[in-house]
Nucleic acid binder design. Sequence first.
DNA 1: GTCTATAGGGCGATAGAC
DNA 2: GTCTATCGCCCTATAGAC
Lengths: 207, 207
Amino acid sequence: MTQCVIAMMVAMPRWDPCAEERLREAALELFLEHGYENVTVAQITERAGLTRRSFSRYFADKRDVLFAGSERLPAVLARAVRHADGALSPFGALLAGLVEVAGELADQAPLAAQRRAVVGASPELRERGRTKFAAVTDAVADALRDRGAAGSEATLLAQVGVAIFRTALDRWADQPDEAGLPGRIREAAAELAASLGTVDFAALPLP
Amino acid sequence: MTQCVIAMMVAMPRWDPCAEERLREAALELFLEHGYENVTVAQITERAGLTRRSFSRYFADKRDVLFAGSERLPAVLARAVRHADGALSPFGALLAGLVEVAGELADQAPLAAQRRAVVGASPELRERGRTKFAAVTDAVADALRDRGAAGSEATLLAQVGVAIFRTALDRWADQPDEAGLPGRIREAAAELAASLGTVDFAALPLP
DNA sequence: GTCTATAGGGCGATAGAC
DNA sequence: GTCTATCGCCCTATAGAC
């Protein structure tokens, strides 16, 4: 957005700038008005002042228009995990990374709420949302392997970390309070640890 | 399959019976031969001796043809969790349910391996696979709520339980050994508990 | 930018099963 | 007759090839 405004002040190009951003805004508006399934790509491009063909230049498919902007989260989280205090265990580094990134995410809350509403109403979009979270999981698992976690254990820990993150996000979105997102993460992780502590693994039945 | 054979012995209808199953078999064969993206619905229905239009009666879309048959897993797992020993904590019941169902799943290994190969090769199918796992997570979370777990904590525990289940499945598929799937579940859960134990939650930085 | 293949679905026709 | 599974032809929209 900021980049776009600056570009407009510097020069007035022949075609309107910020095509991608206008597409995203048009799509969000239309989805909120009529629901995802009832909106065609043609309607989106029309409202944005572009042709049907231009849509494909910016987004791989219709679903992607809602998730653009979240491509960086996997890399950002992976970086935070990699750069966490070297003395921490893999899971400790994971939690520290989550908390760090959560602090930077706080200002994106309003937009996230709108997107949340649209995505939640469409099975097709919820499916794509899971893919986006899976990309985060994969990136985090790679980072944990760099810190010495074994292959499949890194994947397991990454999945658990992302689950904690999602839980914290949900609770924070439902009732934001002074604790903030980082506090919610710590809370969810502590709850999980307590739950795991209730189980005596040796007592589980075996085949 | 069994139902189909019996039906054929009872009567010989004008059109071949077991259309759904033939479609699933034809699809799996074609996907293995040419790859998911290079197979059209028309080719599948042709091999199954049907028309393209009939495909829609059985499957909501092309992806679904590979995942049909897994619709019952959510209900089966949820039932196992609900019926676990009443003295167990929510997470204890979750693990007990996973172990119980894992024992019954062992005989489906060969088919699962083929499906695994096809799904793993296509991003589109991996996306749908995540949706199927999400259905399991939702059902398990409901069961945990019935056992008294709070709303969002039930969701968190369910996600973690499914992550343990997936890890165990992956390891078991990669190298099946005498421990069996239930043993792998216990192993993954114990690993996770150990990892969580390494973290001092009070030491995590707060905003 | 234009064009085509394909997915997905609406509707009615049809042909056996009952 | 009714019921049910299938087909055939229609259309729209997506996605990708040219």
